[in-house]
Amino acid sequence: MAALVAILAALCALSVAIGTRAIPWADIVAALENQVLGGQVDNIGQAAVAVRIPRTLLALLAGAALGLAGAIMQGVTRNPLADPGILGVNMGASLAVAVGIAWFDISSAHAYIVAAILGAGVSAVFVYVIGSLGRGGATPLKLALAGAATSVAFSSLVIAVVLPRADIAGGVRSWQIGGVGGATFDRIFHVLPFLAAGFAIGLLSARRLNSLALGDELAAGLGERVAMARAVAALGAVLLCGATTAICGPIGFLGLVVPHLGRLLVGVDHRWLLPFSALGGACLLLAADIVGRIIARPAELDVGIVTAFVGAPVFIWMVRRQRVHEL
């Protein structure tokens, strides 16, 4: 965990230092001092660093939120394929925001966040209900298939809602890719209370998730209120996913990859796995953002594209595992 914190600090420094413009370290230090002390920007290099600082902070928060949400969803559903993107939660939040923009003319950051959280919650419940139908209940394969079908359907609905509105179509399509560009402290301030609530609920659910991992009957025998434990933990994941999607757009696969890496390094105890997933998610999203700035210079690749390249092979590998139905 200490090593991960050190890696995260190094990635934050690289995120501030690396971009389309090469900036001397003296200007980077001066820009950081200006941000802390409220000084004036002296040159274009310091101005560029001033833009990168909120971008770095947003990538850190969004990555931590999605990594933690993925670990919570996998714990709640006991499904190794659970992920905000694969289960359709991110796309449900996207559809809610698109409907709010196109039909109700919402424009405030608070309205975006509320709409995204409601959409994420409704989508999560819908996918879980569909995946629970038939014999065997909510198996990993059924949930993955239900989530994939829901994501495709909601993605088509987003296009259908936005297509007649040429005035908003470009912005919504760009937002749907998923990215942290254009971040400002004002946008982060609006989303911070929702993220803080999601982090608190999620991290405090670690003991309950350990009980749920034993099975519903054994958890109930140990005195755990299974339905309440599952609902509270899921609420934390929905808050994290909805708030992150509202400000960054849907970013897929990060919540799938990070918890599995965490299990390899710190085991299955959620008291360790949840904070590790949050730190690992922040590291992965920061690294993806840095890579996106480097490989397409002077243009940039949004982090949603980079994480898809990383996460898709991992998802295919997991599906092809022979014993995935037993996890």
Rank of each mutant, 00 (worst) to 15 (best):
T244A: 14
I295S: 09
R293M: 05
W272A: 15
L240R: 13
R263M: 11
P259W: 08
C283N: 03
L274K: 06
I247D: 06
A299F: 06
A233K: 11
V268S: 15
F253N: 04
G242S: 14
L284D: 00
A243P: 10
C248V: 06
L284I: 08
H260V: 02
L279I: 15
C248I: 02
G281F: 09
I247Y: 06
A296T: 03
V266R: 05
L264Q: 12
H260F: 12
D269W: 07
I290G: 02
A234Y: 10
G292P: 01
G281S: 11
A237S: 15
T244K: 09
G267D: 05
I290T: 08
L274Q: 11
L279H: 00
L254Q: 05
G280F: 08
V258N: 01
G280M: 07
P275L: 07
R263H: 07
L235H: 08
F276V: 12
A282W: 02
G255P: 11
P298F: 04
P259I: 01
T245N: 11
A246R: 10
C248A: 13
L286H: 03
L273F: 07
A288D: 05
V268P: 09
I290Q: 01
T245H: 09
L285W: 06
R271V: 01
L240S: 13
L265N: 00
G242M: 14
R293V: 01
R271W: 10
V291F: 14
F253R: 06
G292Y: 00
R271L: 04
A278C: 12
V268L: 06
H260D: 14
G292C: 04
G236I: 09
V257C: 02
L284Y: 04
V258E: 01
V257A: 15
P298R: 07
A296E: 08
G281T: 10
C248L: 05
G255R: 10
H260G: 11
L274P: 04
A234G: 14
G267T: 01
A246H: 10
R297A: 14
A237R: 13
D289F: 04
V268H: 12
C241Q: 02
A287H: 04
G267P: 03
H270W: 06
A296L: 12
L256Q: 05
R293D: 06
I294N: 05
P250H: 10
H260S: 09
G255C: 13
A288R: 09
V258K: 03
L239E: 12
G267A: 03
D269V: 04
G249F: 10
G236E: 11
G236S: 13
D289P: 04
T245Q: 09
I295N: 06
W272G: 07
L279K: 02
H270Y: 14
P298N: 08
C241E: 03
G292D: 04
L274E: 10
V257K: 03
G280E: 02
P298G: 08
V291I: 15
R271C: 05
A287L: 15
G255M: 12
D289T: 05
G255S: 13
V291S: 01
L254H: 04
G249H: 12
D269H: 07
A246P: 09
L286Q: 03
A278D: 09
P259G: 06
A243S: 14
L256G: 02
L273D: 04
H270F: 14
C283D: 05
L261K: 00
A288E: 03
A233N: 13
V258F: 02
L239H: 12
V291K: 00
V268Q: 13
G252C: 15
L240A: 13
R297D: 10
A288Y: 04
I247N: 09
A299P: 02
V257Y: 05
